[in-house]
Structures are given as C-alpha cells and as structure tokens.
Nucleic acid binder design. Structure first.
Lengths: 146, 146
DNA sequence: TTGTGTGCAAAATCTTTGCACTTCG
DNA sequence: CGAAGTGCAAAGATTTTGCACACAA
C-alpha cells in the first residue's frame, strides 16, 4: 500500500516540488474508495486546499500517472477515471453499482499469453484486465430491496 | 466472423432502418484492421458515401455498440476506438506500433475469477481484457531497422 | 405517406495552452 | 533569488443536441 509519505518521497527524488496542491491531490487519491475523474479530484482537493484549480488536477494526475503512482481505469462506459496503484498490483475490480474499486494481484495469465503468442505471432508487451461485479455491500442491499 | 449481411439483418430485425450512411459505416468497420475513433469512421465513410456526417458516425457507433456489433477498445492512451466484435470473441490484441487489432477467444479466466470472488466477495459480472504487443510485421520491421 | 434517420450548425463538455503571479527549495 | 508550479481565462477538441429536411419501409 502506498502512503502519502512514500509518494512524496518518490516525487521529491525525481526532482518535483512538493506543493500544497500536490499534497492535497495525493491525499484525495489515497482516501478515495472509487476511481476519480479529474473533475472529481478537483472538487475534493478544494476541500483540503481551497484554491486548487481544475487544471492542476489534470496536470497532477498526468504527473502521477507518469510516475506510476496512479493509473487510468477503463470501464466500458467511463474511461476517464484514475486510481492509485498499490504495490505490485495491476488489476482492478469495480463495483457496477456503487463504483467502489478494489485491486487484486496475481492475474496468472502467462499460459494464456503463451497461447496467444503462438496463435497470433504477437510479442506480448502489456495487458489490462478490468473486472466488474457487484460488491458485497451492494449485494446485501439488493437482497434487502427484494 | 460478422458479415455486412448479418449485421444488416440484425439491425433490420430490431426495427432499425438500413440507410446509406449505416451501410457505409458498417463496411468501414468490417474492413478496418485497426480500431477506429468516431472521427476515423467519419473520414472513411465519406469515401463510400460522401455526405455522411460526423454526428452520424457517433450515432451509428452508439447504435452498433448497443446491438453488440461493435465495442469500445480501451488502450491506456487512446480509449475512444471501436472495433467489430467477431462471433463469441471478446478480447483484443493491439499492436503497439501499427495499431492493428486482432481478436482472440477463450480467455480461461474462470479460475482467476473464482479466486477473486472468494477473496473479495464481489459477484463477478463482466470483465475486459486488452492485450498489447508487437505484431509479426512490426517485429520484422524492427529487425530490419536494426 | 410517415416517422426514423440525417446533416448542419450551435451548444455543451472536456482538455490543453499561454501567461503573469506564487511559492518551494 | 530562480525556476518549477499554479490559477485563471481563453483556445482547442470532442461530444451532444435541436431542428428542418430526406428517404427507407
């Protein structure tokens, strides 16, 4: 799990400055349970640091994305969200109902990729696996609702 | 593999009209080797039917997407492309260099999903797997180039 | 003939850029 | 102090909407 401290150090080490705005945005991302659009980040960051601008949300998300701290989440409908990447994790599990995002590890796709490589001749470079479902909380709400 | 005929029948059966514009757009999608943005579809469709408008490209892609004929392809950078869905296929393999898209079947993720379900409590509803790599043609170009 | 579908232009969104001012280091 | 970073406003893209006309059925 990333902490604010770790991320700040990572930015600092790479020569980037630690500003109010960046701190606020990092805190927002760390405390988010779901994935956030630049506009979401903007809105929430203002609560922590009132004159953060939308443009800074864009710029900081891009920076954090380049640094590998955050990554874009692609749902079929909404493909403009970002979420923090946990250590070594790469895949997201999104709740269809409430939008909550969890991560999971170990996607064990190597066999599949080997097959794909043999069949297609492609050299596999990267992959993205996004899973959607209904989270436990929403499942119980559903049962209550009938 | 979908054919123009099959798609036309599918639309027709669902009560949609078969217009010049729709035919042109379907042909464009069928003949595309890579995934296309609405703007791409617009440009190419005009070659077949000169007064197709951009708006129609948007509207037709949405329609075809609802009908399950086409689906959005999500690359990390570009998430606005669409490609035809082959029968029963659901996953795409994109070449990083030339953008060519192929499909593959049988993603054999059921074991993984079972594990994710047990660990997270989520009821898995859907998933999206996008793989990127270098296609055979681009691999040989690379070798030639040094 | 009829109303779905179209193209155009305009509006609404979303994202990027330019620039003077702030602020971290 | 100096340059990276910021916020604002404006420009650029992208996507959606309104409306009169066209054309499948």
């Amino acid at each position: 799990m990333h902490s604010e401290q770790e991320i700040v150090q990572q930015l600092s080490a790479a020569g980037f400055r630690i500003t109010q705005a960046r701190r606020a945005i990092i805190q927002v991302l760390l405390s988010a349970q779901d994935c956030l659009t630049p506009a979401d980040v903007y809105e929430r960051a203002r609560l922590l640091s009132p004159n953060v601008g939308l443009v800074t949300a864009y710029r900081t998300l891009e920076l954090l994305s380049d640094m590998g701290v955050v990554r874009k989440i692609h749902g079929d409908a909404d493909c403009h969200g970002y979420a923090i990447i946990g250590h070594g994790h790469r895949h997201h599990l999104t709740c269809r109902r409430c939008g909550r995002v969890e991560e999971f590890e170990g996607c064990s796709l190597s066999e599949l990729f080997e097959r794909v490589r043999l069949e297609s001749g492609f050299a596999i470079v990267d992959h993205m696996l996004e899973v959607t479902g209904i989270c436990p909380d929403c499942q119980s709400l559903e049962h209550q609702a009938g």
